[in-house]
C-alpha cells in the first residue's frame, strides 16, 4: 500500500500478530504435518502440527502464523481476513512473510 510509511513490507518487518489466511493445496505423503498452502497464488510449505486434533484436508482454509497453521476457518472468513490485512496496510508484509517461509536450500536468505 502506498501509504505504508515504511511499516510492514518495505522495512523487512514481519508482525507477530499477523495471521495470514491460506488454502491447503496438498498434504505431504510422507509427513502429514507438512502441507503446501496457497496464499493469494503464492505457494509455500506450512506446518500443520498445531492442528493435529482436527486435521485440515486439501481445500480447507487455515490461518497461518509464523509458518504454522493455527486454526481452521471458513472460506468467507479467509477472504475477510485477507481484506482485514489489506485495510490494515499489512497485506504486503503478509505476502513478504509468506514468501519468506522455506529457506532456499543454500540457506542464504539475507
Amino acid at each position: 500500500m502506498a501509504d505504508d510509511h515504511g511499516l510492514g513490507g518495505s522495512s523487512g518487518e514481519c508482525h507477530m500478530c499477523l495471521a495470514i489466511p491460506g488454502k491447503i493445496i496438498e498434504i505431504s505423503a510422507d509427513n502429514p504435518d507438512t502441507a503446501i498452502v496457497d496464499v493469494v497464488s503464492v505457494r509455500r510449505k506450512v506446518d500443520l502440527g498445531l492442528l493435529q486434533d482436527d486435521r485440515p484436508q486439501p481445500g480447507d482454509w487455515v490461518l497461518i502464523h509464523v509458518g504454522f497453521a493455527m486454526s481452521k476457518i471458513s472460506e468467507q472468513d479467509a477472504q475477510d481476513q485477507m481484506q482485514t490485512l489489506r485495510i490494515l496496510g499489512e497485506a504486503e508484509a503478509a505476502m513478504q512473510e509468506v514468501q519468506g517461509y522455506g529457506l532456499p536450500d543454500r540457506g542464504e536468505v539475507n
Partner: peptide
C-alpha cells in the same frame, strides 16, 4: 552473522543447512 527468519522452522532448517 544475523539472519532474518519468518518462522522458527526456518531457523531449524538453517541449522540443518549449516
Amino acid at each position: 552473522d544475523v539472519r532474518i527468519v519468518y518462522s522458527p522452522s526456518d531457523a531449524l532448517k538453517l541449522a540443518k543447512l549449516n
